Amino acid sequence: MNEIAVGNKTTDNIRTVSDAKRDFYQHHTRPINSVYRRVVEELLVEMHLLSVNVDFKSDPIYYLGVVTSFERLMQGYRPEQDKESIFNALCRAVGEDPERNRAQAGSLLNLAKNKSPQELVAWLSEPTPLENYHDIIEPIKAIASNPHFKYSRLFAIGLYTLLEESDPEILKDVSKRNEILESIATQLHLPGEKMNKDLELYRSNLEKMEQLLSVIEDVLQAGRKQKNQPKPEPETAE
């Protein structure tokens, strides 16, 4: 049997991307809207590759990154009712519980609402017990103390979302944003430069999706306008 290196170790019988895709379409049987197919497939591949990495351990910040990426990049998806099924299939295809993901992401987001960015950074580096947040404390505590912590783009997006919830204005100021992100990277021993690049790409992708949705809406409006125009009466021969 062939062995495959994952992370810093070697293992066999590892699940492949094809396995994850097959599982996804077993859970979500409807076709994916073509405009969003690449978004879904790239997110699935990213989640899968993390799930099979020996150094990766999911946590509430990662869950928030997954939820946020999905919700923002899937804006405008039609049919709307399929979005929940797609999200659930993404999680289950990589062995995750979609309800737990959303619940822990939501808890973390609620916590950020009541903290300034500085308080948030301090809490993330040394999480203190808080009522109603017991399920997210230990996983976050383990991040800074884990010498083999597996950083990911989705983790960075989770952090970015927390800052956005804490103080949306701070993200509009590039110098302040970079300062707070650098502080987080230092406190949690994260690759700061890579995190900044990942977040730049994330913001760029959001802008592109907004532009695409705007173009689609313009086309739809033009189509509706043309459809509603009265048809000219046919000329009658004398």
Rank of each mutant, 00 (worst) to 15 (best):
K227S: 13
T186D: 11
K172L: 07
D82E: 14
A93V: 04
L50K: 01
L109I: 10
S51A: 13
H48F: 01
L162F: 05
S85E: 12
Q226F: 10
E238Y: 10
A144V: 06
E131F: 15
N228S: 07
A122P: 00
I170G: 03
L64A: 03
K225D: 13
L181W: 02
L109P: 01
I180M: 05
T236F: 13
L163T: 03
I216T: 05
L163W: 01
K172T: 14
A144N: 05
H134S: 10
Y151K: 04
L44N: 03
F70C: 02
I86Y: 02
D173G: 09
L108N: 02
N205Y: 08
L190G: 00
M1F: 06
K225S: 11
K21V: 11
A105W: 01
Y25R: 11
S175K: 12
E217M: 06
N228H: 13
E169M: 11
I184R: 01
G7Y: 06
K83S: 10
N2A: 09
A142P: 00
E169R: 08
R72K: 14
V35C: 10
S34C: 14
K115W: 13
G106S: 15
T16R: 03
P79F: 10
N110M: 06
R102G: 07
E119Y: 14
D218S: 12
E193H: 13
K57G: 04
Y62R: 01
G95K: 03
E169V: 11
K9I: 10
K208T: 15
Q187T: 15
K208M: 12
C91D: 02
L212R: 07
K176W: 04
M195I: 13
R72V: 14
L163R: 03
E210K: 08
V67W: 02
V94C: 01
K57P: 02
I32F: 10
K83P: 04
D97F: 09
D135A: 05
N101K: 12
A222T: 14
Q229Y: 09
Q75F: 12
M74C: 11
A5C: 09
